[in-house]
């Protein structure tokens, strides 16, 4: 089996996870910027984090033969403080020049507030100005349905944004259709308690089709499973899906989306 892990927060994971993912057939890891579990106190904290994502972490992954790519932003959990958010937006352009950066992400909404929406719009503006791919985080649990609708409204309001260059992540049964019908890519995140299980992810793929969907583990500092994508590939096999179909979902699709940025090269 070969697969791409298109969404993993490896700065929060131990080195053994890199080895396990490589052994399971992982061929590349992509790491969006996210919330550290606590609020950073200044833009300098983000500067150091972006250095970690674009310099240190690729070296750590390379020790296991894994290409490492990153996405940059201030996440919606910290964008309620608009002054800090704008300071962070100001330093992103210099990091966009770094060779492992694929785009702007994971941006989006958390509690669906007005400030979050303003900062989401400013990230989208930055992505449009610098012709970047976009990776969107949709809110958790009871806030997901409302937040996904709001995010789609904001994206559709900017005529410079091409839906095929945007992936909207963490979809579930109540949001997957609206994302795909609007022409965006959809990401299914596999978590032990929230988001989707391998069985539900395969259900969604069987119903919605696998054309513009990727799977990811989004492993971080919380309860999460770095091998969730290969486990879901096994789940597909148990249901009788062909090896070709599994490969198209866990390898072909993320490669197709990510290759829209020519920096995404895997040997």
């Amino acid at each position: 089996m070969r697969y791409i892990e298109p969404h993993a927060h490896m700065v929060s994971r131990i080195t053994d996870d890199y080895e396990a993912m490589r052994l399971a057939g992982c061929e590349a890891i992509c790491e969006p910027a996210f919330w550290a579990g606590f609020d950073r106190s200044s833009v300098d904290g983000f500067y150091d984090y972006f250095c970690q994502l674009t310099d240190y972490e690729p070296k750590r992954a390379a020790k296991f033969g894994l290409p490492h790519f990153s996405w940059l932003c201030i996440n919606p959990k910290e964008s309620e403080d608009m002054g800090l958010a704008r300071d962070v937006l100001g330093i992103i352009p210099e990091f966009l020049k770094r060779s492992n950066v694929l785009g702007i992400g994971e941006i989006g909404l958390n509690k669906n507030t007005r400030n979050e929406i303003t900062i989401l719009e400013e990230h989208i503006d930055l992505a449009a100005k610098y012709d970047q791919l976009i990776l969107v985080h949709t809110p958790h649990l009871e806030d997901k349905f409302k937040g996904t609708r709001l995010i789609l409204d904001v994206l559709r309001a900017d005529s410079r944004i091409h839906p095929g260059r945007v992936i909207i992540d963490h979809v579930e049964e109540h949001t997957v259709e609206m994302v795909l019908e609007a022409g965006f890519w959809a990401g299914i995140t596999l978590y032990p308690e929230s988001k989707a299980t391998p069985a539900r992810a395969v259900d969604m793929v069987e119903r919605a089709g696998m054309k513009n969907i990727w799977l990811n583990c989004a492993c971080d500092w919380g309860r999460s499973e770095p091998l969730a994508v290969p486990r879901t590939a096994i789940e597909m096999g148990r249901r009788g899906h062909s090896k070709e179909a599994v490969d198209a979902l866990v390898f072909g699709n993320p490669v197709r989306f990510l290759s829209q940025n020519p920096r995404f090269q895997i040997s």
Binding site: K111, T113, N115, E142, K146
Partner: peptide, 29 residues
């Protein structure tokens, strides 16, 4: 579509952004 119906039953059905967040977390209902 029971899974979708359960998720909708546990979701915020409103459409307008809220003025400000009271905390960062979600509780599932």
């Amino acid at each position: 579509e029971r899974a979708k119906a359960v998720l909708m039953a546990l979701s915020d059905p409103t459409v307008d952004p809220i003025p400000a967040a009271f905390g960062k977390g979600a509780c599932g209902a």
